[in-house]
Structures are given as C-alpha cells and as structure tokens.
Write a protein that binds this DNA or RNA. Structure first.
Lengths: 244, 244
DNA sequence: CAGTGGTCTAGACCACGAA
DNA sequence: TCGTGGTCTAGACCACTGT
C-alpha cells in the first residue's frame, strides 16, 4: 500500500548487503556521492536512505570520515531490581568505566534522593563498552554518607558499581523503577554514539530503606537496539526462585 | 556547540507558538508553502522542521489537509502487574474499543502462549481513545477455553478487558513483563496516528498459573510521549501495600 | 477543480578529518 | 589541501482531500 520510495529501496538494498555480509561490520561504505551516482539518485535522497539505517542503529555516520557499518552490539536484559545481565552468560562481560563525582544536591536531584538542598551527594557516571563501542549509560546517585569507598574506576560489568551497591544494600529495601521510551538527549546520543532518532529505554530506579530514606537513585539509558528490561511480579516468586 | 540549523530555529519558533497557545490544539498550521515563505526557507527545510515536531508528537500531518496541532494527550502510567492507571484519577477514563477475534495459534503465538499449533486462541484487540485521538494499543491473547464470555466491545478503561481479565485471574499467578523501547511498526503508527519516528514502550506481559500454564499473553504499545511504566520490587511490599 | 502534503532533483556552499 | 559529510535552495512532478 505504501508507494515504495527510492529511499526505501536503497535502504533495503544496503540492509541486505550488510546483513548478508557483503559489507562487513566496521567497514566503511562508499562515499555518499558514489552511492548516489551508483543508485542514480540525488544526494539528499541517498542521505535519507542512510538516515533510516542510522535510526535502526545499523550505520554510524562520522563527519568528514564516512558511513560505517556498526558492529552488532550484544543485547542485554535489565532485570527488575537492578541487576543487569547479558543474554548469553558465556560471552565476555562488558567493560565499564566509572567517573566518581562529589557534588551537592540541587534541583531535580533533591527530589530524586529526597534530601535537602546542598546536601553532599556522590555521583557515579558509568559508561559500559563492548569493544570500542559505547554500549549503555548509567548515572547513580548516592547520599555521600552512604557511598561505598573503594569503587574501581574501570571494571568488567559483573564487578561494577551496580553489583557493588546492590551488595551493600540492606535486605529490606524497596526498589521502585520507572521506565520510559524516549529519544536520547544530544549529550546521550554523543556519548553513546547513536542516532538521536534511536529509541532508548530510560529507567529511573529509586531504592529506599524500610524507613523510606532513599539509599540510591539511578538513571539508566539503554538504547533500544541492544537492551530490554524484564520484571517478574512475584505473588510467591521469592520462594519459587530457588527452583531455577 | 551544535551550529544551530534553520530547521531548529523554525522548529523552536513553532514549538513556542504552540506551547504558548498562539496556535491552539486542533488548529491547522498555515500551509507548508506559506510557512516556507514566511520563514524565508525552501520547502524541504521547512518540512524538516515540521518533521521534528512530528517526532515529538506535537504536530500531526494529514496528507492533502495540512499540519495540525495535536491535543496533548494524557500521560498514563502502566503499573507492573497489569493494571493501567491514569496520572490523575479525577479525569475521565479513556474510552476503549475492543475487537474480539477467534483464531488458531501459529508461529510466534504458539511460543508466546506455550500452546500447540492450531489450538484455538481468542484475541482481544484493544484501542483506547482520548476524545477523538487514539491513545494506546493492546493486544491480548488467551487460550479460548479460558477466555471470558461477556467482553464488552466498548467501555471506559476502568471496566475494560484488562480489568475483566485480571479479575478472573487465579490468585497465584506469576506475571512476567518484558519492556522494550522501539519505533512503532507502520501498522501501529497508522492506527495510533503517530509518527513512525516516535519512540514507543512495548510491553510483553505473560501470565502463568502455578502449573506454568500460560493464562494470558498481552502485547502493549504505549507511545513514549504519553505513557511510562512503573514497577515496585517487593521484598516485603505485599504486606506493606495496605499502608498507602 | 484547487489546495494540500510527498518525493525527488541537481546543484551550491559550509564544516570536519586526515594528510 | 582534498575528500568526506551537513545544510540548504528553488524548483519539478505526483498523490491525496475537499468542493
């Protein structure tokens, strides 16, 4: 029904060439001018076709260098409660770099952590990589008096801040997670090197102790082409976990 | 840092005119040709600016008619476990239309419901509206022998199929929900009348009884500009619920 | 039919990256 | 410097919607 436009024909053709391996991951595509003349279209039309591929996360465009076929990134599953696991446990864990900042609560942060303004907060900015490609992004806020001391600045994912923090959590912690589908902010798009048209799963996780004090708040950004999230409502699940 | 492009300037200007009320919801924008000459740009440039507004869900484009300012749709929160509530309970509930189909399990459906091929399945296609605008989309599959009988084909949300089904659910039901951020399929974009660039939150919910039999599987599509989802991990939450 | 958006062209000129 | 992508123009022609 939709009158197939040339951009779609071209996008389909390139998609096929990529997924069939005729063009390999990491490889550069011919220049846009070359592709345009090869397909017999004008440059804007060709660029529209490429835009579709970028939106799908198949191609990364680098100004002045060219269009590159992306390495297919591993698909992660965020498991409700805060542990990020990968689809196949056999593969290598992601590599995470952490930047620790000490700051004072302001604006939205005070709401998030339910602390008074200017109270000291420790921020962990976590960026996970798969190989050379940034994978996903997490920003964890903790009231400074609760912040763990020895947080490594680089580590594989399984030993990262997430694990560190969840291990230090008291047992009766209530975790509330709010998920949104949106587009990345320009900053997020830049650090993750994704198209700003790609859908991302944004997760806001707030952990509070039994007194209602917020122990930890995290903002995660998981690009939709490489992550999803799963939650299991447990009427009796806590007892049934042992079975698996 | 980003060299402000004309499309952004125009998009910003229109955004302001819309949010400040200079152009009202439901109103038609001037034609693209008029806008182009008013801003002193060519038609493609103007269309790019409009494309941004469509992606944000601010503007709906109708071929042959024009560009229309959308009514801001209510923001819903999907609550883990399967009850959809609206942000402010004071407002009118959404209006839901349901189409009931009887079909036989095939392909992915057999996996989803864990039934054998060709076994009878009842499908409820639910489309919720706010006023004249489609809001969100749900598709619920139930093995036919478990399907409730008297499902109304139109109803306000609170009395809809969701409530109907969750009320009929046995107490010890395990619900697993998987969430993804993605773009709508062309069909979804058409029925919801959203830009195919808008991010949507796709939820797959599978409910199983204590024997592991799948009682219900649902695929929800919640456009990111009008819905999010929240989950509460309950170490002791089930007992603490009464407090609220 | 007139008016609208949908797609495309064949260039122009600017900005970035590598050498 | 040269080759790359980024943005934009000033049209053309087609398709859809209403009268």
């Amino acid at each position: 029904m939709p009158p197939i436009s040339r951009r779609q024909v071209i996008a389909d053709d390139l998609r096929n060439q990529i997924s069939s391996g005729h063009i390999e991951a990491g490889e550069r595509l011919p220049s846009e001018a070359q592709l345009a003349s090869r397909y017999g279209v004008s440059t804007p039309t060709l660029r529209n076709a490429l835009a579709d591929l970028q939106t799908e996360g198949l191609v990364e465009k680098i100004h002045g260098k060219g269009n590159f076929v992306r390495h297919r990134l591993r698909r992660l599953t965020y498991v409700g409660g805060g542990i990020l696991t990968q689809a196949s446990p056999t593969t290598e864990p992601l590599h995470v770099t952490v930047r620790t900042n000490h700051l004072r609560a302001q604006g939205p942060l005070t709401d998030l952590l339910k602390v008074s303004a200017d109270s000291p907060v420790t921020e962990f900015r976590c960026l996970s990589h798969e190989g050379r490609s940034p994978h996903s992004l997490a920003c964890i806020y903790v009231p400074s008096d609760l912040a763990p001391a020895n947080v490594p600045s680089e580590s594989p994912w399984s030993e990262g801040v997430e694990a560190h923090l969840s291990a230090h959590r008291p047992p009766s912690t209530e975790i509330q997670e709010t998920l949104t589908a949106r587009h990345p902010t320009p900053e997020e798009a830049a650090t993750l090197r994704i198209s700003s048209a790609l859908a991302v799963l944004a997760i806001k996780r707030v952990a509070a102790d039994s007194n209602g004090r917020v122990i930890e708040a995290a903002l995660l950004v998981l690009p939709g082409d490489r992550a999803d999230a799963t939650f299991t409502s447990n009427p009796t699940t806590s007892e049934r976990r042992a079975e698996g």
